[in-house]
Nucleic acid binder design. Structure first.
Lengths: 340, 340
DNA sequence: ACTGCAATCGTTATCGGTTACGTTTCCAGG
DNA sequence: CCTGGAAACGTAACCGATAACGATTGCAGT
């Protein structure tokens, strides 16, 4: 009814109800020490003015806000899937979620983004945070759970069984008869990248295939980083018959380069990815990849964070989730299979 | 080096640099009136202590924060796609993004969620907000852009051409020979739901097929809402030969019910959805649906909000994006096609 | 009537920054 | 030497809310 364009604050309510802001605060927070009559008056004033407490002001003064935070570098399919899991875990838990994402994706600003965002939020706004694929260790006043933490981190985290996943992927290629298998690695500060490379090496070694360092390209999980690496691998006089990329995004770039250079997939080249993002099933050919449930990663991370915040912490500090191979159309026996 | 676990505040920096907090603030914000020597001292203190300004405290005092907000009710594929577009539009724009999502998905709390979230954020935290599929009109101190606004809203918004999309979808079914076409509507407070129903009616009328009200089920875009409606339609003695659902999520539930009741799709029943969420291509059979670029919706909404915030507003208040029909495997001619 | 204890409510310090305003310093010009 | 004014910096009010604390009131017990 009333022309309200300015935000209505607690003192507006107090004035309207004829009480002090302290009383309004008590009513809002359901604290003890307010008569029923006053409560009714304040409630009615709140209703009438359409008052809603300012998250900012509240969090500045209070220690607990019942809001959890999530910081992510960019916002691609991976993060989106994680988010769904996080929201599921938080559903009806009393915790709201704030996601902070910065817009300056690349460039110098990015260095240390997670610490920057974390400090901004965890100053007061959130009771705890989830950090997705950080670049380094972070410190924070409030609990932090990392999804896909940095290598060697002992902080609470959730991660997929990358070693097993990568091993299975390469074993699949070996089983098809491939012997020259290229690898495009991820950002090596991440534990996941490290494990995936380990899996690659382990599978080869177990099969008695020597690891050829020149078949390993060093990417950073960013799709774009894979393009020049794939080009180098495929323009060799003796290109590999298969390439295992440490992420689906990079695998797609391998497919792109292969198409460019006239390789047919899976005829001339088999490609395996890692992640199983939704797009992997849509491309032609469908991408053979290692499924890690990003949804589950988010779900578990949120559960862990919740229990850290409420202090009912009783699980191991690091949760490892299983992976599984999804065979689609991008892999096949090599043309010159040793033993068909 | 130093054991810092407590958050480092501006006064910590001030103490370390031997100046007042006012001076630190001036240095941080690059204001005039600080000698080069002092600037250097403060900078060094900031560096050493790892100080990062608190978003909360800053926003409380300041009007401009360079942070845009997005509030969404739940967090499914639709929202995730929108988010990717938003992030793209904001990339390197100087604006960061805060997403606020509440965890109480259903129940009485939900009523008016968008206003609640908006007030909490827009109090001070954000310079403007995007609201995804609101339940009602919202008021805010700062600019608001709605994605898929409520019916009759004249506020800035971005929406798909739902009328054309729905019309095309039903024309597709008519073209296959279907005459008894069921419809499962969306939440009717939304402009999109309204237009999709209009498209359904218009296509039928144009083709000279009378609209049978008993073939229309009233859902709310929530997948679960479609289950009982589909059951009713398909358990009739004279079930429709095709069902057009106003969202993919609801269409999936139709497929589920159809399977339950022994209908083969598309043999006994054709199904068309709306949205073209990523999952639609993955299901068996692939879902024929109307593609609306949720990515584009997000992208345009963010662009619009940016220009509203910076005051360079010069575009129409409502942006309408095109839709297109994606034919997959869930539609076919009816068994008893009038004229094959 | 006086004391003691709850219940109720207002006052005020505080959170971490920003900024209007006042004060000090310093140097140029008269 | 004195004055004026700008530059540099500190002081304190303020943003909106919370909570420790103090003040007031009502009422039972003596």
């Amino acid at each position: 009814m009333i022309e309200v364009n300015a935000p209505v604050t607690m003192s507006d309510v107090a004035r309207a109800a004829g009480v002090s802001t302290a009383t309004v605060s008590r009513v809002v927070n359901g604290h003890y020490g307010v008569s029923a009559r006053t409560v009714a008056q304040v409630r009615s004033a709140i209703e009438q003015l359409g008052y809603e407490s300012s998250l900012v002001a509240t969090s500045l003064r209070r220690s607990r806000t019942n809001v959890l935070g999530l910081v992510a570098h960019s916002f691609q399919s991976y993060t989106a899937e994680v988010l769904k899991g996080v929201m599921k875990a938080l559903s009806r838990s009393g915790f709201d979620l704030i996601i902070y994402a910065n817009s300056d994706l690349y460039g110098s600003y990015s260095e240390g983004w997670e610490q920057r965002h974390l400090t901004r939020l965890s100053g007061t706004l959130t009771d705890g945070c989830i950090v997705v694929t950080p670049w380094g260790e972070v410190r924070s006043r409030t609990p932090v759970v990392a999804i896909d933490p940095v290598r060697g981190s002992t902080a609470p985290s959730v991660i997929s069984d990358n070693l097993a996943g990568a091993t299975t992927a390469v074993e699949h290629l070996l089983g098809l008869g491939h012997r020259r298998i290229g690898f495009i690695a991820g950002r090596d500060s991440l534990a996941s990248a490290w494990s995936r490379e380990e899996g690659y090496r382990a599978a080869l070694t177990t099969a008695g295939v020597p690891v050829d360092p020149t078949l390993i390209g060093r990417g950073d999980f960013n799709p774009e980083s894979a393009t020049p690496l794939a080009r180098v691998l495929l323009q060799r006089p003796d290109p590999p018959s298969a390439i295992f990329a440490a992420s689906d995004g990079m695998a797609f770039k391998v497919l792109e380069v292969a198409r460019e250079l006239g390789f047919s997939v899976p005829g001339d080249l088999s490609v395996v990815g890692f992640d199983n993002i939704p797009e992997s099933a849509l491309t032609r050919p469908g991408l053979t990849t290692v499924d890690q449930s990003m949804y589950q990663l988010g779900y578990e991370a949120a559960r862990m964070l919740k229990s850290l915040v409420t202090g009912e912490w009783d699980e191991p500090g690091q949760i490892v989730l299983p992976t599984s191979l999804v065979v689609r159309d991008s892999t096949a026996p090599p043309k010159s299979a040793p033993r068909p």
